[in-house]
Amino acid sequence: MIRRESGAPVPAIEVNDLTVAYGEQPVLWDIDLTIRQGVLTAIVGPNGAGKTTLIKAILELVPRAAGRVEVLGRPYRDARGEVAYVPQRGSVDWDFPTSVLDVVLMGTYGRLGWIRRPGRRERREAMQALEKVGMEAFADRQISQLSGGQQQRVFLARALVQEARIHLMDEPFQGVDARTEKAIVEVLRELRARGDTVVCVHHALQTVREYFDEVALLNVRMIAAGPVDEAFTEPNLRLAYGGRVPFLQGVTGFEAPGGGP
C-alpha cells in the first residue's frame, strides 16, 4: 500500500470537482469522490446518471470541463500504468478476426510500448490470466464464438495482464451467466486480497451489499459515497433514483423504518 510521508494511505483515486459536459449538456456535475486502496467499490445510479462517463473521465477517454483526478497521489497521466480498464463488452466488434489469447495479450501492449511484440513471457502471463477466469481452454478460439459471459471473462483477463493495482470496470456483470458472475466475483476478491483496488459500474442493486465494500451513488451529481453500510441506504437510493423506488424494497438489506413507505 502506498502511503504518504505521514503514514496515512494515499487514496487509490481522488476525484475533485469533476465536471463533464457533452456539448453544452453537463453529464457530470462537480463530482468529488475518494476511492480507498484495497477495497471493492461499486458505482451505482440510474440510466443516464453518468456512471460510464465518470470512469471514462477518470481515464481521460472523455474531456473534462473542469476538475482534477489523482491516482495514488499522482496525476493520472503519470500513473497510467497502475490502472487497468475493462470496457463494456458491447464496445467492440466481436467478429474481429482474432483469437482469445490475442485479445488478452493486448493488455500487455501498454507495457511493451511502441513496435515491440508480445513474446513468450507475455504469452505465459496471458495464459495465467485466462486460467484465473476459467478460460484457458478457449485460448485459441476465435472470439466471435464466445458467449456473452465468456467475452466478459476475456476482457477481465486482458485487464489482469495489465499488471495494474487499480481496476476500473464498466458493467462487468452486465448480461453474463451465473457461472461467469461467480468467476468474476472470485477474481475481484482475489484482487482485493492482494491489496488491489477495484471500481465497478454496477447495475444490479441486489448484489451491491454482497459483492462490494463501498459504494458511490451517482445521478449526474454525487449523491452519496462511502462504506456500503453507511451510503447504501434507502433515503440515498431514493435521492439517486427519484421517488419511485418500489423495486428497491429489501435491496439495501435494511428493513425500511416503520415497515415501508
Binding site: 470537482d17 453537463p26 462537480d30 473542469a66 451529481r221
Partner: peptide, 20 residues
C-alpha cells in the same frame, strides 16, 4: 454560441460547486 455559453456554463458550474 460556445463562447457565450462558456461563461454561462462556468457560472452554473460555480454555483453547483458552492451548493455541493
Amino acid at each position: 454560441r460556445r463562447a457565450r455559453q462558456r461563461l454561462d456554463f462556468a457560472r452554473t458550474m460555480l454555483m453547483v460547486h458552492l451548493l455541493n
